[in-house]
Amino acid sequence: MGAGHGHKLHFHGHSPVHRAPAHLKVVALLAFVVLVVATPREWFWAFGVHLAVVLAVIGVSRVPPSYLLKRMVVEVPFVVFALLLPFVAHGPHTEVLGVTVSEPGLLGAWGLLAKGTLGVLASLTLAATTEPHDLLAGLERLRLPDLLVQIMGFMVRYLDVVTTELQRMRVARESRGFSARNPTHWPVLARAAGALFIRSYERGERVHLAMLSRGYTGRMPR
């Protein structure tokens, strides 16, 4: 257990995009997202250019498009909201394929969908081409406060440990014949979440002890 699997967002490679310094990539991503968000949604052609830029970077990085596509499910809640928008928004209505929809709603949905998709795709590309600890080093070089970088570092380190723990608890529940099928089972899940919180909290205390034992005084070494 534990050996041989990478972080789920990272795609191992040696392309120029992979090799580029992490802090440059972070700045580039930030600039790109700001640009996308600032683009008026009526400038349809501009979004074509943005998309072309992202696709070009993905092409150079050699990350398979299907790899990124699968991870774009995080966007689903926004897509659902965007699809509802034309039906619930006010303003003048038009007909599309025989359905009456709100015109500003349609434009709003387009804007949300286009900007959201571009942002998610660009972020996933960064995640796929940058190892988590390189990313942290990059953020440190960008002068992000030390404490925030430490917290993120611990998150990266313990994400797998906590998910494995969650997995084990689920297996243990199901081995005793429990599976959450309807809301009457939710209290059990809530207790499991509580137990996980306590365990993680206690682990945090043990990690702190281990750090103190090796001379930690509040500052991470560089």
């Binding site: 990266v156 313990y158 682990r203 002890l209 005084t217 070494p221």
Partner: peptide
Amino acid sequence: DPDDQLFMGTVGADVAFGPSNL
């Protein structure tokens, strides 16, 4: 539990934690 003791991003950084605190 080694997971309590190894909290840095890489093995090398973790081993360096103690001595650099010194």
